[in-house]
Nucleic acid binder design. Sequence first.
DNA 1: GTGTGACTATTAGTCCGTA
DNA 2: ATACGGACTAATAGTCACA
Lengths: 75, 75
Amino acid sequence: MKKSSIPPKDPLQAFGRRLAELRKEQGISQEQLAYMSGVARSYVSGVERGQRNISLINITRLAEALQLPASKLLE
Amino acid sequence: MKKSSIPPKDPLQAFGRRLAELRKEQGISQEQLAYMSGVARSYVSGVERGQRNISLINITRLAEALQLPASKLLE
DNA sequence: GTGTGACTATTAGTCCGTA
DNA sequence: ATACGGACTAATAGTCACA
């Protein structure tokens, strides 16, 4: 991106924390979530740590694996 | 990876329709939204038509430009 | 069970047009 | 004002070995 004006990295960390929180609520590991959603385990790790700018399709995949609406992950 | 393992594609169109809807509610043009959020106008167009897999950072930027929570765009 | 750096292939996102 | 391309660059997806 070229416009580093307002919100660069915080949304990623917020999303990551939220994801980890919801995942743990269901008592599943990153490994299991990765398998269920069809993404790499190390990718789940990176997302939860706010180091990856996840795309809408993968947000949706994770939400489905957790059986939650995608919007829930952004709250 | 199992690209066909879990449903993709629809979420993009759902998001695009939702974005267009919320944008029009505020009487804003794609051009204005693009400018306010710092993304390319042609990109907003592509996103609204469900042709682009937008990332979390840009979802957040659009949400801020519309002065709405990001989760609202995914509902 | 998780964090991290490195890596390649793919795509997100830009900028230029045309209609 | 919007749709839709092409060409381009930067960033993401996805994987791996190792900590």
